[in-house]
Design a protein around this nucleic acid. Sequence first.
DNA 1: AGACCAAATATGGTCAGACCATACATCCTG
DNA 2: CAGGATGTATGGTCTGACCATATTTGGTCT
Lengths: 254, 254
Amino acid sequence: MTTEERRRTDARPRAFEEVLARIEERIAADGLTVGDRLPGERQLAEQLGVGRSSVREALRVLETLGVVTPQAGRGPDAGAVLTSRPGSALTDLLRLHLGLATLSMREVIDTRLMIEQWAAARAATPPPAVSTGTVSTPTATATATATATARMAEAIAAMDAARDPAEFVEHDIAFHLALAEASGNRLIVAVMRALRDAVRRYAVDAVVRLGDTGGLQDDHRRIHRAIEDGDAGAAAAAVAGHLARAYPESGPDS
Amino acid sequence: MTTEERRRTDARPRAFEEVLARIEERIAADGLTVGDRLPGERQLAEQLGVGRSSVREALRVLETLGVVTPQAGRGPDAGAVLTSRPGSALTDLLRLHLGLATLSMREVIDTRLMIEQWAAARAATPPPAVSTGTVSTPTATATATATATARMAEAIAAMDAARDPAEFVEHDIAFHLALAEASGNRLIVAVMRALRDAVRRYAVDAVVRLGDTGGLQDDHRRIHRAIEDGDAGAAAAAVAGHLARAYPESGPDS
DNA sequence: AGACCAAATATGGTCAGACCATACATCCTG
DNA sequence: CAGGATGTATGGTCTGACCATATTTGGTCT
């Protein structure tokens, strides 16, 4: 029958997927950005000709992906607020897939190594002074890098003052996050944050295993100095050495 | 009343979040992995003492994150099947945040550069023969790398035969995806796939702009050869040269 | 006995309607 | 004019009811 054939080719798009597509179109068409609001759930349901539950599922997906944040009450414009939290989705993603044994800790740590090295080299390299293209302020990234390196110094001092491994790791995360921010790439920052959140416990174990944090701090200072000096090669090398120290080759199972 | 006080401190966890947490607990506790099934929606709702709509929203989140796939019909065990599609979530994430102007194309492309370079160096480096640790077959990754390099060669041939930019890019994606797979890191592969999907159109423009694909193919061959020779440095250098050619510095707005 | 087809059944997908708690707007009162 | 009571729209949730589909089951025909 034609029914069967129809079903085959239709690929059965579900209602909430349709809603998702429409909302995405709307964002692109109206040029909506962070801070703007979507219509209320009931209104959207009526506009799109679907039930409210379908709209809700679509909004839940968008919330999961860090695109909207639900806002109750009665605003002048009502509905969900467009936001930007790409990190939360990545964190959830890693946590769940690690739980499912779809990803191994080794893979996550290796990825982290890759990012750190790249970010360090990138942060040390002054922006190539792109004359064409973006209208955005050329000094903006430079300022961002400056505050980021300042935060790195603060983190180093905080690690010196740390009394236990957990506290040390907390500031260590801040240090490496600042490193990522110094690269000026928001996607990298988001991924970095998610990775560190995922391996937080593992990092504490690593610090405990090492016992002495003096070597790590030497590395941190070396990284920080290399970036301030604008020596990309030295920065990358310093990071490589640092991570080799923290996570020596074989992935311990303990 | 205690009701008001309770509300304040509760930080209002929503029902579907509770369901999410419970399902995650269950996965960890029962050691569920890919292929296993969750109870049906109605059954879950009853077990957890919530409405079916809340269960559905939780499952929708899990589906978005690539953890479950809905399965209709009446199986011996019923309900959603645990899967592993970390890529789809990443793809959606990038697409939406690019649409929201939260991420710039430049950031995405830079990230892609980072991954490609790392993957090439990694693929060229033979596994350091870790004597301890994982029980998994030591030859498994080697085999994966071998088939990946073979796919890279196929992709190069296919690009030679390509008649238009779109087709060329299609096989180019296959080539670079195989490169990522050769690194043996599934997280990297997932991110790579999402990145390529996000910049697919942009890549076609780049090819059209270049006009001649001969240089790109030379690069591809150089990368492939370096990996087969196990020369990590040459592989990384080849990738860097390749991407510098494809995306010359300034981000064109066209 | 074996192959094949039809009813039974459980699933996810969807909608409609109702209720709650909250947050904002309004208006009324002091 | 200030401040609190009231109204209203919002998201959050539950219930109950359908639909289309996919598997099972059981019967029927060969």
